[in-house]
Nucleic acid binder design. Structure first.
Lengths: 191, 191
DNA sequence: TGGCCCATGTAATCTGTTACATGATTGT
DNA sequence: ACAATCATGTAACAGATTACATGGGCCA
């Protein structure tokens, strides 16, 4: 499922402009999907071409007219069709974890900073989800399910990082693979 | 960071053929990275061209020679460089969660089946991690860190799904948006 | 008047996925 | 005899990222 289906899903909840969709994705969908303008606008264009969405035009602030998209009856049908047949692929693509895997090859301070950064990312996503829950109190069951799962996962990740960071950093400092081959005998047992 | 860097990382741990790398990725890296042959082989080719890895050739079972790659000194330098500057991007791309978000538009049985499938995926990844831990007992601190984090996250996800699936399914059955527009007056307030 | 937010879109580029092609060895 | 596993690679395609282009309104 690509950005096109993502937009169709979002529009089935509530009409929006492309710009608004991006914001919504960042605020509420960020923990399981990302999409930039470069994929959102072409996706909306294609959806409109195939009649799955339509739009009202109004004079926007920029040089181009602003378009507020909404799903059509045909779009609803297509959406149900896609939902009924799509595979539930779930993949994580994390440079962060790859970096952690290679922690031995980095300076401990760098590792520490990376964890810090990740914790901040997680916390801002958690805040966004908290806000969404407050704003949109009785959302559909599916939306709440995903929101709760997101909060649980993010919370668990943050907690793990906070609890284990010291263990990791200590281990790295004890066995300094990362330091340039000048200072060798910290353990007193190098060649 | 792309498949190229991923391969460089994996080869810095231990030499391997392209085929073996894929297996390793599936078994131990699956919870945070995926790569198919179509990206692994070209990546290894490029790495070899730029001198970051080298390989021994032996007569393999297939029509082509088998190449076992290992990282070079220059490769180690390049790797450290990349590790020192890379951004810790972490992104989830989950059709599964998007489907759950749209649960109202599906039949409850379908939602149930999707959750089932996901739980099985998680469990097989957990098994792979458990096996890796048993096999490779005292791995570097970074590797253990990532392995433990993976187990924690996967375990949390599985538990959440098991605990909340009934609540979700019940909610869906109570308010059948998913059924064709025949039965309207369940809430008694349709147009 | 300088910068940020709103707002849409295109084009070049990068990367990954999928399908295809090839074929020996080992186990059932 | 058949299937699975081992094993490498290419080519076509799909999709996303990035940078660019445009410009009004609002706030300090």
């Amino acid at each position: 499922m690509d950005t096109e289906t993502l937009c169709l899903c979002a529009l089935s909840v509530e009409p929006a402009t492309g710009y608004e969709l991006k914001q919504r994705f960042e605020q509420v969908y960020a923990h399981f999907y990302v999409a930039g303008f470069g994929s959102i606008y072409p996706a909306l264009g294609k959806l409109a071409d195939s009649g799955l969405v339509e739009f009202d035009v109004s004079r926007g602030p920029g040089p181009r007219p602003r378009k507020r998209y909404r799903i059509t009856a045909e779009g609803e049908r297509a959406l149900r069709e896609r939902l009924a047949t799509a595979e539930p692929v779930h993949r994580v693509h994390s440079d962060f974890l790859l970096l952690m895997l290679m922690a031995e090859h980095m300076e401990p301070a760098r590792v520490d900073a990376l964890i810090d950064k990740r914790v901040h990312q997680i916390n801002s996503q958690l805040e966004a989800l908290e806000k969404a829950r407050a704003t949109d109190a009785d959302a559909p069951a599916g939306v709440e399910f995903v929101r709760d799962l997101g909060q649980t996962m993010l919370h668990t990740a943050a907690e793990f990082l906070q609890t284990h960071r010291n263990t990791l950093i200590s281990a790295l400092e004890a066995e300094p693979d990362h330091i340039d081959p000048r200072s060798e005998s910290i353990n007193g047992e190098s060649a």
